[in-house]
Amino acid sequence: IVGGMDVPERKWPWQVSVHYAGIHICGGSIINEYWILSAAHCFQKEKSTEAFDMYVGLVDLNVAGSHTQWFEVNKVIIHPTYELYHPVGGDIALVQLKSRIVFSDSVLPVCIAPPDVNLQNVVCWATGWGVISQKGHTSDKLQEAQMPLISLLLCQMLYGGPSYIMSDMLCAGDIRNVKTVCEGDSGGPLVCEFNHTWLQVGVVSWGRGCTYPMFPAVYARVSYFSEWIHYHVEHTPLPLQPLPTRSSMLAATLSAPVTMLAFLLTL
């Protein structure tokens, strides 16, 4: 986030850090105890599902707090129109975790904007661990910034025509104060408050640079995809949980004293 501020703990409890091979590459949001919403381009075909990790309950990328949880990925579902009608169109992905998220004050789901959401006069915020300056500096602390929504028509004019900004996209950014999302924020949420409830209206997707105010950031429009999201969350079977076997139970009974011994040896 360029022009943002450090976030206090528990302020955005749905924020996810998507790691690939141990490095933060994208954001995401918790929508369900088994599901994360993110951007399709964070999960390019050449990337291996096994190398992804999802972190929730995190504010500082370098410090796992008492509320931090870590998850492996069971399945990634990319929207079927991704890259079909536009180089970054349909930029939305659903990530199913191998095990369930335990909710707490610091880890909670966000609501999905319905297809008929009215985005007039709402206050919206973007969050992420992406680039924070023109020089490409990053911050380990989660950043936030209030992002005014920009009408589709104005955004199309700024970018040079309707073929650049399609109906599955949404533009937002503080042009006057140069606040916007940047590299590394992709997949993260744009959320707005409606009657004390936070709805996710956008997924950070793309833009022409981060510091050219005339080119606001472009998000995947969540309301356009909400039925697809609901369909897959409701119809995709949960991951198979490994059943305890006689040998693994034996291993568990053995591993506890061994762990304890290792702990005592380190004292």
């Binding site: 302020k11 789901p109 609501c111 999905i112 904007a113 319905p114 409830t197 936070w198 709805l199």
Partner: peptide, 27 residues
Amino acid sequence: NAHRCPKSEGVSLNRDMACGHRYIQGK
């Protein structure tokens, strides 16, 4: 799934947990 939020306020994808509420309020 139970949709615990009214449609106009967004949709919860959780059976037992209302979505979009946090325990602290921003400024």
